[in-house]
Simulated scan of single mutants.
Amino acid sequence: MAAGTLLFPADYSIPVDYFITKGHRVLIGGDLTAFDSEGNLIFRVQNSSSSTICSSYSGGRVKTLVDASGIPMISSVHSAHGEWKGFNSKDPPPVDFIFTVKRQSRKYLEVFFTGQNYRFTMKGNPFRRSCKMYRGDSIVAQSCLNYKLKKTIPPPRHKFRLTVFPGIDHALVFALLVIFFW
């Protein structure tokens, strides 16, 4: 793949907002779901403990990003070394290695792409559901809690907004956001 090309198609030319809901761990396993501004389901994260890609890594935690129709897109595996590995899940078995995420601290991640000469960094506060994703010095996505004017109680942390800027694949951003909050 040539430098500067996208891993996945990104056909939006304006920033797009998604509204994210994080389920309760007891009820639905803590899954994240993304909705568009009209309330349509766009992405969902499934927790899985067994997978063909999990067998080669001894971390055990696998998160699979699926689209609205349930088709797997990206699988992320937590390795024993504290890293996350991302695989393309569009064609089974998911063997196409996409990225590695290294956690420098709770509030800072570095994302390295296979065969690419650039990387992403993610900085923010997982507790407040806020982060910014950078490619170089440019912000490619950001998340924040949903604030309302004239509201005296703090906003709930299980609902927040994700804004994805043009030129980046939305599924990839959502998969990296899941890793940041876990």
Rank of each mutant, 00 (worst) to 15 (best):
G29E: 08
P93D: 02
T121S: 11
T21C: 06
K132M: 12
R128T: 12
L176M: 10
K107P: 00
L6Q: 13
A68K: 10
G39D: 02
Y134P: 11
A10P: 03
P15A: 07
N117A: 06
K123S: 12
V16N: 01
V178N: 12
G59T: 04
S56P: 01
S138I: 14
S49K: 03
I74S: 06
Y57P: 01
V95R: 14
Y12P: 00
K132G: 00
N125C: 06
I42M: 14
K150H: 12
T121D: 03
S79T: 15
K150F: 13
I139H: 01
C144S: 15
V26Q: 06
L162A: 08
F112D: 11
M122D: 02
A34G: 08
L172A: 06
D17R: 09
V140N: 07
S130G: 13
H158Q: 10
F127D: 10
K148S: 13
T5N: 07
G86D: 02
K107E: 13
V111M: 01
F43M: 00
L27H: 07
A3H: 11
L176N: 08
K85F: 07
S76E: 05
R119G: 10
V16S: 02
D96V: 11
I20M: 08
F35L: 12
S138A: 14
Q116I: 00
Y118A: 04
G82V: 05
V66T: 08
P72F: 05
E38A: 13
N117T: 03
S89V: 06
K132W: 04
V101N: 02
S48C: 11
S143M: 07
F120T: 03
A171F: 04
F35T: 08
D67W: 05
G86C: 05
F120M: 06
V26I: 15
Y147L: 07
D11L: 14
S55E: 10
V62K: 03
R61I: 15
V95Q: 06
V101S: 06
I20S: 01
P15S: 09
P155D: 06
V111S: 02
S143I: 03
G136V: 11
I74W: 06
S50N: 12
A2F: 10
K85N: 11
K132A: 09
F43I: 04
S37F: 01
K148R: 12
Q142F: 10
V77P: 03
G29I: 02
M133D: 01
L32A: 02
G136W: 07
F112Q: 11
S130F: 10
P156M: 08
S69E: 06
F19M: 03
